[in-house]
Simulated scan of single mutants.
Amino acid sequence: MAYPSPLRKLQEQAEAAFLQYGNDPRPDEGAHPVELAATYGEIEAEYASMRKAVGLLDLCHRATIEVTGTERHDFLNRMVTNQISADTPGRATRAFWLNRQGRIQADLMVLDVPDRLLLDVDIHQVESAVRTLNEFLFAEDCHIADVTQSLCHLGLCGPGAAALLDETMPSSSDSKDASPAAADMKPGQIALRQSPGRAQPIILERRDTVGDVGFRLLVHPQDVMQIHETIVEAGLNAGLRTVGWLAYNIARIEGGTPLFNVDFGPDTLPHETGILDQAVSFTKGCYLGQEVVARIQSQGKPKRVLRGLKLEGQHMPITGSYVWNVDDPNADPIGIVTSSTPSPMLGDTVIAYAMLKTSGGDAIDSTVYVQAEGQVSKARVSPLTFWPRPEA
């Protein structure tokens, strides 16, 4: 995504409030901070749109790496934690890029589209991921490049997302270019939408991050304003709203979506993320850091793991709040909170993610105690997903 977002002026006209996303790890290299639309003034309505209709997000905190060449699948498969195969075109695969110590350098979604692989990555990791992946290239027919300036990331979330996509950008009836309707796409499936006059096809990916149907759209910057306007105009009668980060953050915590650089990061091992089954294959060949991953798998558990928490009462913990396994704030903490929110789908119960020591109280349904607004609140350890939609 270009700096700033191509939609920035439109967001300012809508009187959006903005917030800075994360801490750029390259402050001395002239890097630009990333600002996200925090809210368009009605957080509750923005949230409700993702639960009852459809919400549209500008995901300008996402970057894109392009991998091309005849050996692109083989090379990337030898680098990352999940299976990347030329036998599964049109699929999106989550994987981690590790260092030699087995710690996560980048959390990737690998999109297998015609003639290239696209790696969706946090914008603060794109430069280091490109650099470190290139360090392992030797004589392979493979080229790795940062193409963030050439693709904008949009998100559609909610029960009406598929119908809206099929209305605004229907699948081709030409058998040569046929791709599935959005309503028929399964999680991880990719489809292309061709249209005369656009700089390049729109890439659709089914990705459910809020406990309901969701899609990611990768759009050329020249086309993003027109695509955005088309979706908004068509969605007005369907209850669509443009959604800011604050509303999305509530929904993604409910929906079981921890984020790199928020809930886990470069000091984290795959087993600690709570999403090991999504991003790691134990049947594929070797990759960087595999020895560490295999050793932890054979030992049975890591030293810590990301868990969900359901708190009693209405006191809200903040990022970094301590968690104890006894009702004593003078005791040694067993973990810290990484994200928290009141959950509208659970009657405003306070929910959170926390990185907990596995030696002290990470078991599901265990009772723990959480630092929250100057109080100590009782909580129950839970899985990361608090609200799945059964038919999503």
Rank of each mutant, 00 (worst) to 15 (best):
V130K: 04
H143I: 13
D28E: 14
E229H: 14
A191T: 08
A17L: 15
A17C: 12
L151A: 11
P180F: 03
E35W: 15
L259F: 04
F136T: 11
D267L: 14
S150W: 15
D327Q: 14
F138Y: 12
E46S: 01
T168C: 15
L164M: 03
G30Q: 10
H220E: 15
K284W: 03
V219C: 07
A354H: 11
L164P: 03
C157Q: 09
P258Q: 02
S343L: 07
R207H: 07
P170S: 09
L76I: 09
I275Y: 01
L164Y: 02
M50G: 00
K284Y: 02
I351N: 12
R295S: 00
A163C: 02
E29I: 01
I203W: 01
T273F: 09
K301Y: 05
L108F: 02
I275S: 03
Q278F: 13
N237Y: 02
Q222A: 13
P33R: 13
Q299L: 06
N325L: 09
A354T: 05
D263G: 05
D328E: 12
F136L: 08
Q299E: 01
Q20W: 05
L108K: 04
P4E: 09
R307H: 12
K310T: 12
N23V: 12
I318F: 10
S339T: 12
V243E: 04
R216P: 02
R380C: 02
A31M: 15
G155C: 05
P329Q: 08
A163K: 07
P388L: 08
Y369I: 06
V243M: 03
V337G: 03
R241G: 00
